[in-house]
Nucleic acid binder design. Structure first.
Lengths: 210, 210
DNA sequence: ACGGAACTCAAACAGCTGCTTGATTTTGCT
DNA sequence: AGCAAAATCAAGCAGCTGTTTGAGTTCCGT
C-alpha cells in the first residue's frame, strides 16, 4: 500500500503551499497586486519567508499562481452555472445564472469572496500572461454569447458581446466596491430581486432604442 | 499695480505644485494608491523629493489632494451635465448625460482620462476621509435619483438608488478595465450607441420583472 | 544694495522590500 | 541505525521606501 500511504513530509509541504496561496489571495483581494507584501503573506500563513522561494520561486510567481487559481475557480463555477440553463429559459434566468457565482461569494464571504475579489481586480490590472486560462475564459464568454443570442434575435453579435462584458464588469464592480458589502447585509433573495432586473435590462438594452 | 503683478517665486511654486498633482493623478490612475512612489512622482514632475514635503507635507497628503482634485473635477462635470437636462427628456437622455463625462474622458485621453481613472479607483479603495466632497457627492446622486424617479413611476426609490449605483459602477469599470481602451478606439458615436441602451436598460430594469 | 522670504536641492536617515544562504529539523526508506 | 530527501528556519544581503536636514539659489520689497 505504499502508493496510497501519504507522505507526511509532502503533505505538510502541500499544507503550507495552500496556506500561502490562500493568504496571497486574501491580500490580493484586499489591496491589489501592488499592495502585497512577502512578509505579510508569510505571517498570515504562519510560514517562513523562504517558504515562498521554496514552493513558488518568488513572490511574483506566488501571486501569479494565486491569481490563476482564483480565476480557474471562478470560471469553472461560471461555466457550470450557464451550462445548466434550461433551453426554454428567459433572459432573466440567464442573468441570474450569470450572477450566481458572485452572489454566492457575497453571501459566503471568507475565501470565496477573496477569490471573487482577486478575479475582479485582475480584470482591471491583468498580469502579463494569462497563461493557459485564456482558452477557458473565451469558452465561457462564447457560451454566454450563444445563450444570449438565442434570446435576443436581431441584435448584432458584437453588440451582445459588449453588453455581456458590461454585465461582467458590473458584477466585478459590485464585488470590489463598498456597495457589495452593503448588499451582503441584505437578505439574499433581495439581492437577486434587485440585481437580476438590472443585468437583464442591460442584456436587452432599453426598448426605445433597441 | 502691485496686486496684479504676479510674484515669480510663487508662480514657480504653483507650477511645481500643479506638476506634482498631475503626476500623482497619472500614477494613481495607473497603479492605484498602493502602487504610487514618491520618487516616481517627483521624477515625472521634474521636481525634487523634498518638494512634496514642502508643498503638501507628505506623500499621503499629496495623494489625498490629487484624489480630492480629481473627484471635484468629475462631480462638477457630472452635476452640470445632469442639470442641463430638459424636463421632457427620456431615460435614454438621462443615461447619455450620466455617461457623458466618462465618454468625453475616454475620447480625450491624457489628464482627463487619468482624472476619471483616479476617481474610479477611489470608488474601490476609498481614502479614510472624503473630506468636504461628501456633500457634493450626495447632492449629485440625489439629483440623479430625482431625475430618474420622474421617468420611472412606481419603482421603489431605494431600488432606483441601487440601479444608479450599478450604472455608476459600470462606468467606473469601463474606464478602468481594458475594455475602455478598446472602446476608445471606436468612433465616438458608436460608443454612445452601444453604451446608452445598456445604461438605460439597467435604469429601467427588465420589463418582465420590473 | 541689502535683508529676508519663497523655493529648490543633494545628502543622509531608519525602516521596509524581496531574496538568498547555510544550518537544522523532520520524515521515509533500506 | 544510518542515510538522504523534503521542508523549515534565523540571519543577513543590497536596494528601495518616505522623510528630514541644512545649505543653496532666486527673487521681491525696501
Amino acid at each position: 500500500m505504499a502508493t496510497e500511504r501519504t507522505d507526511q513530509r509532502r503533505e505538510a509541504g502541500q499544507r503550507t503551499r495552500d496556506g500561502l496561496l490562500a493568504a496571497a489571495q486574501e491580500l490580493l483581494a484586499r489591496r491589489g497586486q501592488e499592495g502585497v507584501t512577502l512578509r505579510e503573506i508569510t505571517d498570515r500563513a504562519g510560514a517562513n519567508v523562504s517558504a515562498v522561494s521554496y514552493h513558488f520561486g518568488s513572490l511574483k510567481a506566488l501571486c501569479d499562481s494565486a491569481i490563476e487559481n482564483a480565476l480557474e475557480r471562478y470560471l469553472d463555477a461560471q461555466i457550470d452555472e450557464v451550462a445548466s440553463l434550461d433551453t426554454a429559459s428567459g433572459v432573466e434566468d440567464l442573468a441570474a445564472a450569470f450572477a450566481r457565482p458572485m452572489m454566492r461569494a457575497l453571501e459566503a464571504g471568507g475565501r470565496d469572496l477573496a477569490v471573487m475579489r482577486t478575479v475582479a481586480r485582475v480584470g482591471i490590472d491583468p498580469p502579463e500572461g494569462w497563461g493557459r486560462l485564456t482558452a477557458k475564459f473565451q469558452q465561457s464568454r462564447r457560451d454566454i454569447v450563444r445563450q444570449l443570442s438565442a434570446k435576443t434575435p436581431g441584435v448584432d453579435e458584437r453588440e451582445l458581446d459588449f453588453r455581456i462584458r458590461c454585465a461582467a464588469g458590473l458584477l466585478n464592480w459590485l464585488v470590489l466596491a463598498p456597495i457589495g458589502a452593503e448588499l451582503a447585509a441584505e437578505p439574499p433573495e433581495q439581492i437577486e430581486r434587485w440585481l437580476v432586473p438590472v443585468l437583464a435590462g442591460a442584456f436587452l438594452g432599453s426598448p426605445n432604442v433597441g
